[in-house]
C-alpha cells in the first residue's frame, strides 16, 4: 500500500494557542480515513494546512512523494487535492450548474460539452439534478451541503478532504452519502472529518482521533471503539 499523503511535525499556533501540535500523520492511497475529535480539537485547522488554506507554523506536508508545504492552495488542487468546506462556501449568487461548472472547468477548460456532462454527472451522484437551474443561495442548507460535495466530485480529485459533509443532511441523504463515498474508493482517497458516529463506523477503514491538537489514537473502527482513552476524551461512556 503506498502512501498518498503524510505530515511531519505539523504545527499551527494562533497567537500562542497551539491548535495543532506536531502531528505526524500518514494516509494510504485508496483508503477512507475518518478524522474525529471533540469540538476545537484542531481538525479543521489540520486539514486546512493540508490543502493550503492556512500556513503551518512548523512541519512539512508531502503529497504523492513531493513536498507541497510551500505550494499555494491552487497548485495543490491542480495536483489532485480537493476540499469541501465545513461552513458551506458555495457561490451564492450563481446557479447550481455554474457552481459545479467552475469546479469542473479548471480541469476541462473550454470544452463546454465535457463540462456540461461532468456537471450533470456530479449533480446526479448527489441527487441534485432537479435543482440544476436554481440559484445556489436559494437551496436549503442540506442541499447546499450536497452542492459542496458535488463541487468536490467534479474536480475528480486524487484525494478528497470532506469537512463534516453530513452536517445538516436528512437520514436518507446520509444513507445515499455513504453509498456515494464507497463508490469513490479506491480511485479517490477520502479524508473525512465527521461527528456522526454511524457514518464513521460504517465508512472508515481507519480512524484518527485528534484531541487538543494531538493524535490521541489511530486504528480500525473496532480498535477505536474499544480504546479507553478515546472513550474518555470523546465518546463519553461509549
Amino acid at each position: 500500500m503506498s502512501v498518498i499523503l503524510s505530515t511531519h511535525g505539523l504545527t499551527r499556533a494562533f497567537s500562542g494557542h497551539v491548535a495543532v501540535n506536531a502531528v505526524d500523520f500518514t494516509l494510504n492511497e485508496g483508503e477512507i480515513r475518518a478524522l474525529i475529535g471533540p469540538n476545537g480539537a484542531g481538525k479543521t485547522t489540520f486539514v486546512s494546512m493540508l490543502i493550503g488554506r492556512i500556513a503551518p507554523s512548523a512541519g512539512r506536508i508531502r503529497f504523492e512523494d513531493q513536498d507541497v508545504t510551500d505550494l499555494p492552495a491552487h497548485l495543490r488542487v491542480s495536483r489532485g487535492m480537493a476540499y469541501t468546506f465545513q461552513i458551506t462556501s458555495v457561490f451564492g449568487q450563481l446557479s447550481v450548474e455554474e457552481n459545479v461548472a467552475l469546479a469542473a472547468r479548471r480541469r476541462l477548460g473550454r470544452d463546454r460539452v465535457a463540462v456540461r456532462a461532468e456537471v450533470e454527472h456530479a449533480l446526479a451522484r448527489v441527487g441534485l439534478t432537479d435543482h440544476i437551474g436554481q440559484t445556489a443561495q436559494d437551496l436549503s442548507y442540506g442541499h447546499q451541503r450536497l452542492l459542496e460535495i458535488a463541487m468536490g466530485l467534479a474536480q475528480r480529485p486524487r484525494l478528497l478532504i470532506l469537512d463534516e459533509p453530513t452536517q445538516g443532511l436528512a437520514e436518507n441523504e446520509i444513507a445515499a452519502f455513504k453509498t456515494l463515498i464507497r463508490s469513490l474508493v479506491p480511485d479517490t482517497t477520502i479524508l473525512l472529518i465527521e461527528h456522526n458516529m454511524s457514518v464513521v463506523m460504517e465508512l472508515a477503514d481507519r480512524i484518527t482521533v485528534l484531541n487538543f491538537g494531538e493524535i490521541l489514537a489511530e486504528g480500525t473502527p473496532v480498535d477505536i471503539h474499544a480504546n479507553p482513552l478515546v472513550q474518555n476524551a470523546y465518546l463519553g461512556s461509549g
Binding site: 490543502i51 488554506r53 491552487h74 468546506f85 461548472a101 472547468r105
Partner: peptide
C-alpha cells in the same frame, strides 16, 4: 467566469484550483 467566481467568493475560487 473565474472573474465572477472571485467576485463572489475568492477563497472558494482559489480552492477550486
Amino acid at each position: 467566469r473565474v472573474f465572477v467566481a472571485i467576485r463572489e467568493n475568492e477563497e472558494r475560487a482559489r480552492l477550486l484550483g
